[in-house]
Each structure stands twice: as structure tokens, then as C-alpha cells.
């Protein structure tokens, strides 16, 4: 199954590849840190407070529990994967940005995208969000044990600290990633938590890369050129 991911390295100001569907908001990157969404009466879900400007008519409504219903809300509460989302509905262009983070467009065709709630900026109405258990990996990333999933058909905008690279993982080419530099992944990937810690690490002479995540299978991994503070980052 071909997986299409838009390039995060588009030249500043150049129009990025966009998908057009009937009555679906059109996502366009304006520069690398600003997302322009053109809407014609439909709606998108966006991170609370991330609107920076709009023209035309827009209404902003906070969605309780990320718009995932009572069950989704309860799961989120328990998971601690806090996500405050608003629904933006109207006609015109709405611009979104958050703390000057780089924005990457991801197109989903039925597959699942795993991303931290704090890195998810905006999703088209055809996408559903949910919560999933990640196990130890989450703890190593300093993100908690749960992560957010985005599923369905449409585009999502995810954020990274610095321009993200999209790395392909295939059966013959597994990929190992620093937990702090991991942003998101999609496709059917299996992740294993690896420890590179050895005798030297215990002696305080570690290479600073004691913990890694190994991705195997078929899919894409988004990696940012920056590392979050993680427990493993110091050893």
C-alpha cells in the first residue's frame, strides 16, 4: 500500500502539496511554521488557542474530551494524554501556528498515525482521534505511557521542533530512533525498546544514547532535529 507523506522541506513560501476533496478544508503550508486552512462551511479540529488569524467568518468551540465522546474523554483523563481541542467552523481562511514550531503535513489513507497530543496541531474532519497505550516507550520519551492516534482519510498537521525528516522503515530496513527526537509514526510498525546501557553507562561514561526505540515493519517515522528532555538523555 503506498503511503504518501508530504515533504517537510518545501522552500519557504512555496505551496505544498495539498489534497482536495469535496467540501473538505484544504491544508496549505505558508512558510514552514504557519498552516493556512481554507474552509467552505466545513470544520476542522485544532489545538486549543492555536489560531493566529482568519478572514471570513469563523466560529471557535472547545470540544470537551477532544471530541471523542464520553468514553474517549474518560480514557484521556486516565491516560493523562491531555489534549484540548477546538472545533473551527466557517468560511474563509484560518491560519494556525503554535510557538513557532515547524509544521508537517501528513496525509492518511485509512492508516493510523501515532503522535503525541502536544505535537498535533490540526486534523481534517474525516479523521478520528483516540488514545493508545505505548508502554515503556512513552515513559522513555518523557511523554507518559499513552499516545494519541489519528485514523481515517484526510490530512493532519503535526508539529516538530525544527524541520522533521520522514524516514521509511521496510522489512529489510529497521530503524532505531532516539526517544527524544521521535515525533510520530504511521503504518504497521512494531516498536521495541532497546537499551544500549552497559558497563560504561553504569560507570558514568555512557554515550548519552542509552535508550533507543527500534521500529520494524512497514511504515514511516517522523524524526525532529532536536531532543526532548528524557530520563535516558542523561545516561
Amino acid at each position: 500500500m503506498p503511503i504518501v507523506a508530504s515533504s517537510p522541506w518545501g522552500p519557504v513560501g512555496a505551496p505544498s502539496p495539498t489534497a482536495t476533496f469535496d467540501l473538505v478544508a484544504v491544508f496549505r503550508l505558508q512558510g514552514s511554521r504557519m498552516l493556512a486552512v481554507e474552509m467552505a462551511g466545513d470544520s476542522v479540529k485544532a489545538k486549543n488557542g492555536s489560531m493566529v488569524a482568519y478572514d471570513g467568518r469563523m466560529a471557535f468551540k472547545r470540544l470537551t474530551g477532544g471530541g471523542e465522546g464520553i468514553r474517549g474523554m474518560m480514557t484521556r483523563r486516565i491516560a493523562g494524554e491531555r489534549m484540548t481541542v477546538m472545533e473551527v467552523k466557517g468560511e474563509g481562511t484560518c491560519w494556525f501556528a503554535d510557538r513557532a514550531s515547524q509544521i508537517n503535513l501528513v496525509e492518511l489513507r485509512g492508516e493510523k498515525l501515532y503522535v503525541e497530543a502536544s505535537n498535533l496541531l490540526c486534523t481534517q474532519s474525516g479523521l478520528r482521534t483516540g488514545t493508545t497505550f505505548t508502554g515503556l516507550r512513552g515513559a522513555a520519551q518523557g511523554n507518559g505511557l499513552f499516545t494519541t492516534t489519528v485514523e481515517g482519510h484526510g490530512q493532519a498537521a503535526i508539529m516538530s521542533d525544527g524541520p522533521a525528516v520522514v524516514l521509511r522503515v521496510s522489512r529489510d530496513h529497521p530503524l532505531t530512533v532516539d526517544p527524544g527526537a521521535y515525533v510520530a509514526h504511521q503504518g504497521s510498525l512494531r516498536q521495541t525498546f532497546q537499551s544500549g546501557a552497559g558497563f560504561r553507562t553504569l560507570m558514568g561514561e555512557g554515550g548519552g544514547e542509552a535508550v533507543q526505540i527500534l521500529f520494524e515493519g512497514d511504515g514511516l517515522v517522523y524524526v525532529q532535529p532536536s531532543e526532548r528532555d528524557t530520563i535516558a538523555g542523561d545516561v
Binding site: N48, G49, M51, V52, A53, R62, M86, A97, D98
Partner: peptide
């Protein structure tokens, strides 16, 4: 306290241009 975080907006009308930054900082 359950707002969308977009409670206040600057409305600019007339003819000209406004410059907007990619951050709320």
C-alpha cells in the same frame, strides 16, 4: 473556563495588510 482560547480577537477592517507571526509569544 472551558473556552477555545480564542476569546479575544483583533478585528482589522479597511484596506491594507496585517503581519502575523507564527507564535503567540
Amino acid at each position: 473556563g472551558r473556552g477555545s482560547g480564542e476569546g479575544f480577537q483583533l478585528e482589522l477592517s479597511g484596506s491594507g495588510a496585517v503581519y502575523v507571526q507564527a507564535s503567540e509569544k
